[in-house]
């Protein structure tokens, strides 16, 4: 399936796409399959399933914390793939792996990508794999597999680079909302909107999804005006900090969907 599910989604739905980021193993060891099922039921369009990492450089305090809790809960790569494979039998929405390059390198790139395909992962988001290094060192290996590869752009990315990233990406382009690690709060200012407008005006082959710091329905709504959709991460992870996290998760999505419509 792989890229097919992603292509199908973006073909059928061009606006207001909602993606939710979860950290596998958070808030409890077997939370991921339950959360993915619930999010699919609530009409979330695709999932960014984070494999917790000991040293997540691009992440702010919320996702750092959820990652270290998840690792303490016993999350590891083989369990991650097992849980994805399990939930894949019940849901059909695209699921993307989010993780750091060392996890892939250490497993062996080929072996890792094979495992992704077998488990039913549709694409990968690897924030610390730069386009240059990918192009020069790893492109041939990744191309053997039917998996989308999502690169990030930020407000400091030049137009020329955005074109390169559009060339290399398959699935969508991850538009980082501001120059910050994940989970930074605060509204969108003029400079954000200028940047979003610039991206929107560019003739890109890939759809665009805005992420990082999307913590309120308002920001989600704004993001959707300039891109095909948005990803919510840290704000959702915060909502899971509750005994009855499935309930608070469900309320969170309902609230976003309701206010955004």
């Amino acid at each position: 399936m792989g890229t097919q599910r992603l292509q199908q989604l973006f073909r059928n739905k061009k606006e207001n796409l909602l993606s939710i980021y979860i950290t596998a193993g958070y808030p409890e060891k077997d939370a991921m399959p339950k959360l993915i099922k619930l999010l699919a039921d609530k009409g979330v369009d695709f999932i960014e399933a984070g494999m917790p990492y000991s040293d997540p450089l691009a992440d702010g305090p919320t996702i750092q914390h959820s990652s270290s809790v998840a690792l303490k809960n016993g999350m590891n790569l083989s369990l991650y793939f097992k849980q994805i494979a399990q939930v894949r039998l019940e849901v059909n929405l695209p699921i993307l792996f989010m993780g750091y390059f060392n996890q892939i390198l250490k497993t062996d790139i080929d072996k890792f990508l094979q495992q992704c395909e077998i488990a039913g992962i549709d694409g990968l988001i690897i924030p610390d794999l730069s386009p240059e290094i990918y192009q020069n060192r790893y492109q041939d290996i990744f191309k053997k597999y039917d998996l989308g590869l999502v690169f990030l752009i930020s407000p400091t990315t030049s137009n020329k680079r955005i074109q390169l990233i559009d060339e290399l990406s398959s699935g969508f382009i991850y538009v980082v909302s501001s120059s910050a690690t994940t989970g930074k709060t605060g509204g969108f200012g003029q400079e954000h909107l200028q940047y979003f407008k610039k991206i929107k005006a560019m003739p890109l082959k890939n759809p665009t999804i805005i992420g990082f710091g999307i913590d309120l329905a308002d920001k989600y709504k704004t993001a959707c005006r300039y891109a095909n959709g948005a990803i919510i991460g840290s704000a959702f992870i915060k909502a899971l900090n509750h005994e009855n996290y499935l309930k608070t998760a469900s309320d969170f999505v309902k609230r976003i969907k309701k206010t955004a419509l």
Partner: peptide
């Protein structure tokens, strides 16, 4: 050119750092 000594080195950075690096 890419910052490697043999197979070691490079710049495995998030895009957010690209401009500065």
């Amino acid at each position: 050119q890419l910052g490697f000594y043999g197979r070691y080195g490079g710049a495995f950075i998030p895009e957010l750092l690209h401009k500065n690096i």
